[in-house]
Design a protein around this nucleic acid. Sequence first.
DNA 1: GAGGTTATCATACAAACGTATGACTGAAGA
DNA 2: TCTTCAGTCATACGTTTGTATGATAACCTC
Lengths: 225, 225
Amino acid sequence: MTRTSVATTSVEKHRSPAGSDTASDRGTAEALLSAAGRLFAERGYVGTSIRAITAAAGANLGAVTYHFGSKQALYRAMLERLLAPIGDEIRAAEASAGTPLERIHRAVEGLLRYLGRNPERPRLLLQEISTSPLPDPLVQRTMKSNLLLLRSLVEEGQRDGSIREGDPLLLALSLLSQPAHMSVVLRPLHRMMRFQEDEGVLLDRLAPHAADFAVRALEVRREGS
Amino acid sequence: MTRTSVATTSVEKHRSPAGSDTASDRGTAEALLSAAGRLFAERGYVGTSIRAITAAAGANLGAVTYHFGSKQALYRAMLERLLAPIGDEIRAAEASAGTPLERIHRAVEGLLRYLGRNPERPRLLLQEISTSPLPDPLVQRTMKSNLLLLRSLVEEGQRDGSIREGDPLLLALSLLSQPAHMSVVLRPLHRMMRFQEDEGVLLDRLAPHAADFAVRALEVRREGS
DNA sequence: GAGGTTATCATACAAACGTATGACTGAAGA
DNA sequence: TCTTCAGTCATACGTTTGTATGATAACCTC
């Protein structure tokens, strides 16, 4: 009998005898979600077979049907889990202390750091966005909330005169562009350009750079000579 | 007998009797390339079947094998055709008259306009980049040449003092981020946010905005009071 | 220890896939 | 008129796909 409900909490029976790497200890459902996140982001939805997922998770072919009901349901559960934390980064920066520009700086830098370290997440997002004509509500929510959060931050700065004029929604979109694009191209770019530093160090250099770039573009022009 | 060579020029025999829409007049190979560009960008490589392509092109199932040899070869031919013109936009702006900042403005605005009007192109690019660990040489060349073109433009401005200090390669990457990201999210964003203006008008507003944003981030800070 | 629930496993099945094959069509060259 | 050849078409092939099924095993409760 298949179990279609995903919301059940106890998925902790039947452990493996020894601690194998990606295998079924810590829960088969957990291992499936983890493998699915990696594979779906790399090869896309259709490009990833249930057989590939279960093999990577060290589980049986039937495990996906049993634990999630279908490939689609596993994909949705994985998407929900990986996309939810993205908004937290911006929310944290918004709630922090400082001027709007300082908080925007933190938001851009923090977001790029987070996405750069977890590239599956922006990849899945972009995949979803560019695949379907009107993306999944979950994806829409993620995109929208981040955009609106940044917009309100921009508006706050415009009100107190620290941020220049301009459509706040478009400015928010500009702010989002760097983290979104750079986090996706970071790895291939790193391999392509043969940087001597490793990928993490490049990200450490890239994140403040992008935040500076964004903040400078928002500042009011100070009247010179 | 299958024909594996793609470089042959005369593919103009055997027309359809009447002018059907996407059908096989103007050449079956041409119709296949066109349909392939649209479908591959929307659904990805594995998500697009030869049957879907040939049906959309109004051609027979065997047409892909006959004209291109394989699905892979069709994909490559389509990629080559769609990716090549991307660099031209930046090259044109680079070769135009004006200060480095003016030319960068033109490059960003022009690139965003071009990609926004042809969203299959950046979609295919990002798809290729985020799919494989090290992308196809053709894709690498496209990405690299645009990046280096912008970098040399930045360096020129830094030499004459009109552009602030900073790693020119990272600055070039920042410049590329907006057109790359915005052109991909434009359509879903437009649908999602329910803009009253239509998509083309939004792009007309977005392109100068993004170019301004980029140029402001590059300007040297003028010392105020 | 019996009974029942929960999970894993090997296997089966229909559908869709990329590709191969051979027959057919029409125009061009001799 | 006959031959040739590029192109189109229907069909068949071996694989791989997502999902269904029934057997087996491990645990908990009585």
